[in-house]
């Protein structure tokens, strides 16, 4: 089964880059610098939080490794969206933010985006800051707070994870649209251009967000069944809820 999983994953990954990251050279320099300035402090926070976590307990290491690999794979995996006839990809940052927190998730996204920009002609170095900010920072924050908010209201774990994945995906594309509209508008008014870009993303991203929600819920529920103790350590679950799982 693992071989089958790997084969199908590879078949899906092995395709030309068709995705949503903002390509090299699209944003004017001042805008590119601004997004770098907003994204890098969040990545620095991620490094700080990861070091603190490593000092606290080394058993998180495989979870961080798993999330890094999952974010890298699914954020460069073009998924065909039959209703739109286009391809795009989920982000994975909602899943990482639920399990590791938004700052480590931003760091993971930054590393994945750097590798993609350098070797996969996917995104770009000048737009790395903008792509980190939309996928890493905004996607992670949206997913994390949606999950925490819904859990506070007593929503079941799987459902809260589903909506967190959905929100992370949609928030990423909203942020990408804002970055793009503000960077390329020239003398045109901002809002009409933003509206046009958002509407163009909708046929692809609306269903893809639902897929991302399903994948996020699946991963969280799988960890709930296999390693509820680690979810308790990461404050995803209370000890009482984990005990109910046996």
């Amino acid at each position: 089964m693992v071989k089958l999983f790997l084969c199908i994953t590879l078949l899906l990954v092995a395709a030309p880059a068709q995705a949503m990251h903002i390509s090299e050279g699209i944003l004017p320099l001042p805008w590119a610098v601004l997004w770098y300035a907003l994204a890098l402090p969040c990545v620095a926070l991620g490094i700080h939080r990861l070091n603190a976590l490593a000092k606290e307990d080394l058993s998180f290491k495989p979870l961080v490794g798993l999330m890094a690999a999952v974010v890298f794979i699914i954020s460069c995996m073009p998924v065909p969206v039959p209703t739109a006839g286009t391809c795009s990809h989920p982000c994975g940052t909602g899943m990482a933010a639920i399990l590791l927190g938004p700052w480590i998730s931003s760091l993971i996204a930054a590393v994945a985006l750097l590798l993609q920009a350098l070797f996969l002609s996917h995104g770009g170095l000048s737009t790395w800051g903008a792509n980190i900010f939309s996928m890493g920072v905004i996607g992670s924050i949206a997913g994390f707070f949606t999950f925490k908010g819904l859990r506070t209201m007593g929503v079941p774990l799987g459902l809260a994870a589903f909506f967190a994945g959905l929100q992370a995906d949609w928030a990423t594309y909203l942020a990408t649209s804002v970055e793009l509209a503000s960077g390329i508008r020239g003398s045109e008014p901002f809002l009409p251009l933003l509206e046009k870009i958002l509407l163009a993303f909708v046929p692809t991203q609306l269903p893809l967000g639902i897929l991302e929600g399903a994948m996020t819920a699946g991963m969280v529920m799988l960890l709930y069944r296999k390693r509820p103790d680690i979810l308790v350590k990461m404050r995803v679950l209370s000890a009482g809820e984990a005990a109910e799982n046996g």
Binding site: A17, Q18, A19, M20, H21, I22, S23, E24, G25, I26, L27, P28, P78, P80, G85, T86, C87, S88, A117, L118, F119, S121, G124, L125, T176, L180, G183, I184, R185, G186, E188, L193, K196, I197, A200, F201, T204, Q205
Partner: peptide
């Protein structure tokens, strides 16, 4: 099956006079 980078991002950028450059590698 074009990617949204081509069908949305680069399309709108091109309309506004911004073209994508080749990546470093």
């Amino acid at each position: 099956w074009t990617g949204v980078d081509e069908s949305v991002v680069e399309k709108f950028a091109s309309e506004q006079g911004r073209e994508a450059r080749d990546p470093l590698i």
